[in-house]
Design a protein around this nucleic acid. Structure first.
Lengths: 139, 139
DNA sequence: GTAGGCGCTGGAGCCCACTCCAACACAACA
DNA sequence: TGTTGTGTTGGAGTGGGCTCCAGCGCCTAC
């Protein structure tokens, strides 16, 4: 069993955010100790981790809530949960493709600046002054 | 030359956002026609595309503004611009690694649900009713 | 010349996802 | 028996990034 502080550390969420997630239904109600404080089981921590993964990959809070609602409705929603996760997987694949394209763009631009500095030219292809070249190399 | 409508279409930004980017200095002031309307040159459109790429890969507005400020200060800032882009490239690489890990998590979970449905078990490993299995398969 | 369409500006408003806070409660320790 | 530490709640506040709007101006077509 883990206190909220431990879980915050393990998941990268703040304690405030963990409480907020629970209030907002992004995580099912967590078990409490006799003093009313949250005591997360390993399974509950694992679940929070999954939610963090979904949020980090861009799933909106509302959709996470839907997922959690399905989880709380029990085994009969396995199919729907799978569908929801499959859609998220597709969105992740799209993001990866987009990220690869954007990486190429940025690297291309970096290469371009590298060449200009190397050749001592400005963006219009005119030679730059020694002073300017000096400043360029300083980064 | 392109009107703001064309550029919105080409870049995926709304016209409102294009105007806002300009007001906020995320794009240098765009050339205007004699009627005061924006007329984007091919180079200006290309620049907007680069900004979209930076924003999409998570660069905050404030940092984009810094980059644009460097661009407007001319050739002597080539080195600094390159540094800024290189940092962004590193962040993109981090994002890709994170995305790969999250993809694995989601796919693992999908596989898990697949197995449970296949085997007709609930999350605790107990067999589910025929009715429940039926609901599961419907997604 | 006037109606419609498109674009302009500055400012207000909005949405999302937290983040902070005051007021309180228990538990352990000096 | 305070006091310190850690947690609780509900509600208000914040920050980022747009998005919408009123009121205006310029063309073009009728």
């Amino acid at each position: 069993m883990f206190g909220i502080r431990d879980v915050a550390e393990q998941t990268g969420l703040s304690m405030e955010t963990l409480r907020w997630y629970e209030r907002e239904g992004l995580v099912p109600p967590v078990h409490r100790g006799s003093d009313g404080r949250r005591r997360y089981s390993a399974a509950e921590v694992g679940f929070v981790r999954l939610i963090v993964c979904l949020r980090r990959t861009g799933m909106p809070v509302a959709r996470v809530r839907e997922f959690v609602t399905l989880v709380r409705r029990g085994a009969s929603t396995h199919g729907k949960r799978m569908t929801l996760l499959t859609e998220q997987r597709d969105r992740i694949l799209d993001q990866m493709a987009q990220l690869r394209a954007d990486l190429a763009t940025v690297e291309h631009k970096i290469g371009h600046y590298g060449e200009l500095i190397e050749a001592g030219l400005d963006c219009e292809g005119a030679p730059v002054s020694v002073r300017t070249a000096e400043l360029q190399r300083r980064g």
